[in-house]
Design a protein around this nucleic acid. Structure first.
Lengths: 202, 202
DNA sequence: ACCTGAACACCGTTCAAGT
DNA sequence: ACCTGAACACCGTTCAAGT
């Protein structure tokens, strides 16, 4: 985990891990079937934040938003974990604790267990996807926004008129903004689904 | 692309690509700076579906849902592409065509350019995240559902009561269900944001 | 049981040398 | 300009041999 945080996902090799642990690479295969199993264990351990509890005097949507932001910030602080996060470790103990917590929240809000599960999965998918999709980019870097503005401006106005026309406004939208809009939409949508469950299939 | 589809992402090595092209691996570096650049080019090319046009006699939300499903199905048919899809190729020509199309749709629905962009990005993030997160799993495989049911049932009822209690119902939720719930929630949320823009920040 | 050293079959990338 | 062969410094994994 220390190796992943300090030197990134590319440095997470069996040789480097073994060195950090003070043994040979071959020794690792006594404790783990292969590299993938090691990664799965590592990622599940890194997911322990999922069980943090939000402030208690708010409604379910605010709690969900709080937890979603906490989870996202945790992943942003540990980009290596985010890049390794695939469906594989979904069934690990810490992931399941997160599922249990989400079910509790969404069932309490009025969802059926089925819908609560799907809603929790959607939210997790969005959070993880959001971090993964912005991994290379640093939203706090003003250079990134400038780079995108210049790129948008220089596109072909005949085929991409809206991008060229609104280049300045679009370049200002950060990954934080994207996340907040999506989060808000998801939670608002969840609330509508609770109040009117028959629209779940149209 | 053929190599990626038939033999998967692990087989997409410079040596295999060169072989398929009938040259040496070293020759590839005449046309491309490194492997990452080649992948970026490949993925953007694979994203050309993004510009398919939905049936015209429906409202913006139905068009968005149609395009979202089309995009997801395309990625599911080409899992290798999904696994390579990171933020890197976001600025390629095909990606930008998709952005232009989404902006057109969402601005037409009543969003400001900024919000339209954020909404489009959220939706894309959700679709890609959804496919990526379910990459290893085959939702059409009944064995997968059974495996999850048994796993949920056998958890500790004291720490994960809801998972154990609703094991059967939860195991039946497929990645298709998850996607549809999330998509519905996002689009419903977008509609609410359009009708009441001041809730964009609370 | 756990560890080691050495090997195996791979990677991405570079570079002098060819045409 | 484009290609080649050969090399470099890495991978994940295996296995006989040690304790």
């Amino acid at each position: 985990m220390a190796l992943l945080d300090t030197r990134g996902v590319d440095a997470l090799t069996m040789r480097n891990i073994a060195e950090g642990l003070g043994c040979t690479q071959a020794s690792l295969y006594r404790h783990v079937r292969n590299r993938e199993e090691l990664v799965t264990l590592l990622v599940d351990r890194a997911l322990s934040v999922a069980s943090s509890v939000p402030p208690g005097d708010t409604d379910w949507a605010e709690k969900a938003a709080w937890s979603a932001r906490l989870f996202r910030e945790h992943l942003l602080r540990h980009p290596g974990v985010a890049s390794l996060l695939r469906g594989t470790e979904r069934l690990g103990p810490n992931s399941l604790a997160g599922v249990q917590y989400s079910l509790d929240l969404f069932i309490g809000a009025g969802f059926s267990p089925r819908l609560a599960y799907a809603a929790a999965a959607s939210l997790a998918t969005f959070i993880i996807g959001s971090v993964n999709f912005n991994l290379g980019l640093d939203s706090s870097d003003p250079e990134e926004s400038r780079h995108r503005r210049l790129l948008y401006r220089s596109r072909d106005a005949a085929t991409l008129p809206l991008i060229v026309q609104h280049a300045d406004a679009l370049a200002e939208v950060s990954s934080d903004d994207e996340f907040e809009v999506g989060l808000k939409a998801l939670l608002t949508g969840f609330r509508a689904l609770i109040q009117n469950p028959d629209i779940t299939h149209d």
